[in-house]
Amino acid sequence: MPVNKMAPCSPCVKAMKTTALLLVTSVTMLTPGLSGAMGDATSGSLGKTERAELVRLVRQDCGSCHGMKLTGGLGTPLTREALAGKPVESMAATIIHGRPGTAMPPWKTLLTEAQAQWIAEQLIAGFPEETP
C-alpha cells in the first residue's frame, strides 16, 4: 500500500496495514461465482462454501438495490425488523420469480429454489455478515 512519504506518522499507516492483513485472509476464502453451487436444487442442506457465496451475493449484489446493510434503497429494507411476520415461502418465491411491476428481477437463472429458500430463512432470522 503506497503511503505518503511526507507524513510518516500519519494514523492511516496503521489502518492500512490492518486492512492489508484482512484482505489477504478474505481473498483466500473466496471462490469465484456460484457456478459450483448450481444444479443442486434437490439438496436441502447447502455446503459451507455455498452458504458463504450466497451471503456475499446477497450483501453485494442484492445490496445494490437493498443496501449492503439491507436497510433499503431503491429496493425495500430486508432487515429482520422490516420482514417480521412475512412467510418464508412467499419471500423465496419473490426471489425466484421477481415482482412484476417493480425493479425486483427474477433470480431463477442464477439461483436454485433451495438457495432462494435458504436466503429467505436467513433474512427472516437476521442475515449473516460476510465472514472474512
Binding site: S10, C12, M68, K69, T71
Partner: peptide
C-alpha cells in the same frame, strides 16, 4: 495512494 479517511458510515 497518498492517504485514507475512515469513519464515513455506509
Amino acid at each position: 495512494a497518498y492517504g485514507r479517511v475512515e469513519g464515513l458510515g455506509d
